[in-house]
């Protein structure tokens, strides 16, 4: 019997957390937003989410089969990519849009670079950026009126704010509930916040990223939001309109493409908020969340290189910084 004792080096016990469990938590956190999209935009929303998830999972499995790698759809990360991409799509897009977007997200943005953990940009956002560049007409005009499900091509609140579209701005209550034009999952602020708070409470995401992101956007818009006058902008509206909340809680917090240190994550959030602000106020597009996060994804390795904690026992973090900089 004694021969059967396992010999290994410490630690001999491991915690209960698993990658799958974390991914499952993210999916749970997305359920309120999914439900909200169903109520607001009807069965079309369900079809888009299903098409997107199915395409993401199938692309991952097929690609891994093709290159003879282990099929890893069981880790559920592809499901999240699928849901997240669907959340960013206008509710009236043809179904091939989510299918192609998810396939691009999984194959081009994730698998080609080595799969889970190796992608350098958030796959869902890369998919969205691709769709936006490829079929801009669908991505900026295929809206549905919430609750009535009429197809409309009028301007989203952000476009109205920017002055590039005609329309009326909904009230705060409508923003919170999501009764306004917008992508599937970005409209219902309450549902998104519910999921975001769940993720923070479960320790899945770091509050610093959404805090930095939304904080920067709020303050920046407050200060510079109105041309010609400081401190006249509507910071609250900047957070409520558009995809800032979806991006801040669910996209920018993607582990693989955000920094590993707490301070780094705060900087990442601030940076993403700042770029979003730049694009919204002075850029060509009405919305900048996608590019704000994507650009910060690219900067993440730099942040990881220079934002390192002061190691225990070292007087200044210069030594540590040099160590990290030289080490990479």
């Amino acid at each position: 019997m004694e021969e059967k004792l396992v010999i290994s080096s410490s630690p001999h016990i491991k915690g209960p957390k698993t990658v799958r469990g974390i991914m499952l938590d993210v999916i749970i956190a997305l359920i309120p937003a999914c439900l909200a999209s169903l109520i607001l935009f009807g069965w079309k929303a369900l079809l888009i989410i299903m098409a997107s998830v199915a395409s993401a999972v199938a692309s991952e499995a097929l690609y891994e089969k093709a290159v003879k790698r282990e099929v890893t759809v069981g880790d559920l990360s592809a499901v999240i990519t699928g849901i997240l991409l669907a959340m960013t799509l206008p509710p009236n897009v043809p179904l091939w849009i989510p299918v192609i977007g998810s396939a691009f997200a999984i194959v081009i943005a994730k698998q080609i670079f080595g799969g889970l953990g190796c992608n350098f940009v958030n796959p869902a956002l890369a998919g969205r950026a691709f769709l936006l560049a490829a079929w801009p007409m669908h991505m900026t005009r295929d809206w549905l009126n919430p609750l009535t499900y009429d197809a409309v091509t009028s301007a989203t609140p952000l476009a109205v704010l920017k002055g590039t579209g005609q329309g009326t701005l909904p009230g705060i209550k409508d923003f919170l509930l999501g009764v306004r034009l917008g992508s599937l999952g970005e409209t219902s602020v309450l549902a998104l916040l519910l999921g975001g708070i769940y993720l923070i409470a479960r320790g899945v995401i770091d509050y610093r990223i959404p805090l930095g992101f939304l904080g920067t956007l709020f303050v920046g818009t407050l200060v510079f939001g109105k041309p010609g006058a400081f401190f006249q902008g509507d910071g609250v509206l900047a957070i409520l309109a558009g995809g800032a909340i979806l991006g801040a809680f669910f996209m920018a917090t993607d582990y693989v493409t955000s920094p590993v240190t707490a301070r780094g994550r705060l900087y990442m959030g601030i940076g993403a908020g700042f770029i979003t602000l730049l694009i919204r106020l002075w850029g060509g597009y009405p919305e900048g969340v996608t590019y704000g996060i994507l650009l910060m994804n690219l900067v993440t390795p730099l942040i990881d290189r220079f934002v390192v904690p002061r190691y225990y026992g070292y007087a200044h973090d210069r030594a540590a910084k040099e160590a990290a900089a030289g080490g990479r």
């Binding site: 080609i112 490829a134 079929w135």
Partner: peptide, 23 residues
């Protein structure tokens, strides 16, 4: 059969095509 994807005519489309063919 499909809707043309404007992105393919832009530099990102060029990079993607080039990369995939190279691979």
């Amino acid at each position: 059969l499909f809707e043309p994807a404007a992105v393919m005519l832009t530099p990102p489309g060029g990079f993607i095509t080039l990369g995939l063919l190279m691979a």
